[in-house]
Design a protein around this nucleic acid. Structure first.
Lengths: 137, 137
DNA sequence: TCAAAATTTCAATGATCGTTGAATTTTAAG
DNA sequence: CTTAAAATTCAACGATCATTGAAATTTTGA
């Protein structure tokens, strides 16, 4: 619990709630497809599919796709539908696809979805220089 | 063109417009997933997947899923998204999945979608006696 | 302690969605 | 011609969606 004093003088307690990730067994197919029914979210999915889980896909890597607040909205949709996992590290958040879990629950589906999205020329994309190979001397 | 006289006395001309089916190349992945993002539509898809195209899946076979007008709405969604084809025969309409076209455009996707939906225990279903073997003496 | 960076939250808006029930259309059959 | 059967269309409704922009939150670092 944190003791918060807002700029307007109001003080209150707030719990640091961890990010919600649904149990993969609770993910219904219709809800999964709803999460995939948006070009921005498909663009994010394709980008994430192109990096390994140890590579770091940071939220701010997608600033070219939409405004920060809209991105946050779409990240939430993907996460709450069980598609992605998000972990916090300092002020940044990193994304990855919940591959093993999704493959176990919906065999073959994720791969064909990604292949389908990858071929869509109208989705937003990150440059071929992404992810950047950073300061690893 | 038909000369129509409505019950309220208004007369007008109307063209019999054929059912709209999008060119499969115009179907965007995000729109396809939107069409799949509903339990009733997934239930319809699974049922259609269980019958060959020569078998006749009639619209009214799905009355257990929803009211006629709601069914009509969902049939329209599937058709306009390029998932199903509808043909008129007398007062009835028959449905089938656009299998070859979808498989050619989105290889592997349809099968994994159907497999995924088939395993969902919460989708509406038709009895195991469907399609009925009818008056074929 | 202060300020900047990364991200979320909130309120508002217009669009679309799923649903209902009544009215309409279309075809076939008596 | 009248009626019945099959299905669609239409208007209405509350719910959710995608989007915007301003405000708030959380962490790091000066």
């Amino acid at each position: 619990m944190l003791n918060i004093v807002r700029s307007d003088g109001i003080a209150y307690l707030r719990a640091m709630k961890p990010l919600f990730h649904p149990d993969i067994e609770d993910v219904a197919p219709a809800d999964l497809f709803a999460a995939l029914a948006d070009p921005i979210r498909l663009g994010i999915l394709v980008a994430l599919a192109n990096v390994s889980e140890v590579d770091k896909a940071r939220c701010s890597d997608f600033t070219a796709f939409a405004s920060p607040s809209l991105l946050s909205y779409h990240f939430g949709k993907l996460r709450e539908a069980g598609v992605t996992r998000m972990r916090i590290e300092g002020t940044s958040r990193y994304l990855s696809i919940r591959r093993e879990e999704l493959d176990q629950r919906f065999p073959g589906l994720l791969n064909s979805v990604i292949e389908t999205a990858r071929r869509d020329p109208n989705l937003p994309r990150l440059g071929p220089d992404w992810p950047a190979t950073l300061d690893v001397p």
